[in-house]
C-alpha cells in the first residue's frame, strides 16, 4: 500500500473528492439503477443465473446493447450476427471518443479503463462537468467512470436477482432514459448557448425516424449530422462573409 494512504489529510481529501464525484454522478445513479434493474429482470426471464446479469454489467457495460442482447439470446442468434449488430448499435461511441480525444490525458491502465467505460452518460458527464479546483482531471474522470459502472452493475445484479424472486409492475419507468438525455441536452445548451445544433439534431433525428429507418435511426442520424456540421464548417472557411 502506498505510504500516502497513511496520511490522514490525504484520506480526508479522498473522502471529500468521492463526495463531489458522488454528487456529480447522482443523476446517472438514478438512471442506471432502475434501468439496470429493468435489464436484470428481463434477463432473468431467459432462465440464466443472476450472476450472469452481473457479469454483463461488469464486462459489456452498455445499456442499449445489453437490452438488445436479451432478444438476441432468446433467438439463439449467431456470434457473427451478434458482433455486427452490437458494433453498429454502439458505433456512436466512435464519435464520443473523437470528442474526448484532446481532453483525455490518462495513460496505461487508467486510459484503458476510461475508454472501456465510455458510455453515453459517462461521456455526457465528462463533457459537461469539470473537476473541482485542485483535483487531477484524470483522477476525476476515472472516479466518475467507476462510480457510474458501480451503479450499473448494482442495478443489473439486483434486477437479475429480483427477477427470480418476484414479478414487478412498473409501467412507464422506461421514461427515465429519455428524461436523462433531455436533462443532459438542456445542460449542453447551458454550456453552449447556441440553438442551431439542437434544432439541427431535432430536424435530422425526427426526419430519419419518420422517413428513412427506425432500426438504424441513431447511426444514420449521427452520420448526417456529422456531414452537415463538416459542410457548414467548410462553407464558413470558403466564404468569409458567411454569418
Amino acid at each position: 500500500m502506498p505510504l500516502h494512504f497513511l496520511n490522514p489529510s490525504s484520506l480526508i481529501m479522498s473522502v471529500s473528492l468521492n463526495q463531489i464525484v458522488f454528487k456529480a454522478t447522482l443523476p446517472v445513479m438514478f438512471g442506471y439503477i432502475p434501468l439496470g434493474m429493468a435489464f436484470g429482470v428481463l434477463f432473468s426471464e431467459l432462465g440464466y443465473h443472476w450472476l450472469f446479469a452481473c457479469a454483463m454489467g461488469v464486462f459489456i457495460f452498455a445499456g442499449a446493447a445489453q437490452f438488445l442482447a436479451v432478444g438476441l439470446l432468446a433467438n439463439h442468434a449467431g456470434l457473427l450476427e451478434i458482433f455486427i449488430t452490437i458494433f453498429l448499435l454502439n458505433s456512436r461511441h466512435i464519435f464520443y471518443g473523437i470528442s474526448l480525444l484532446s481532453s483525455m490525458k490518462a495513460k496505461g491502465w487508467r486510459r484503458f479503463y476510461l475508454i472501456f467505460g465510455l458510455t453515453d452518460e459517462t461521456f455526457s458527464l465528462l463533457t459537461s462537468t469539470q473537476p473541482p479546483e485542485g483535483m487531477d482531471k484524470t483522477d476525476y474522470q476515472l472516479r466518475v467512470t467507476l462510480f457510474n459502472q458501480s451503479y450499473w452493475v448494482l442495478g443489473c445484479t439486483l434486477g437479475g436477482w429480483l427477477g427470480t424472486q418476484i414479478s414487478l409492475s412498473t409501467a412507464g419507468i422506461e421514461f427515465v432514459l429519455p428524461a436523462l438525455f433531455m436533462v443532459l441536452a438542456i445542460e449542453q445548451y447551458r454550456h453552449l448557448r447556441q440553438a442551431a445544433p439542437f434544432a439541427l439534431a431535432l430536424l435530422i433525428g425526427v426526419g430519419v425516424l419518420l422517413f428513412i429507418s427506425q432500426d438504424q435511426m441513431l447511426l444514420i442520424s449521427i452520420l448526417i449530422s456529422v456531414a452537415t456540421l463538416l459542410l457548414y464548417k467548410g462553407g464558413e472557411r470558403w466564404n468569409p462573409y458567411r454569418i
Binding site: F95, I98, S124, T127, S128, A201, L218, S225
Partner: peptide, 17 residues
C-alpha cells in the same frame, strides 16, 4: 466536432429513446 457533436448527440439520444 468535439464542441458541436455532444449537443447534437444528446438530442438524437432523446429521439432514439
Amino acid at each position: 466536432l468535439g464542441r458541436y457533436l455532444p449537443p447534437v448527440l444528446m438530442v438524437l439520444l432523446v429521439i432514439y429513446s
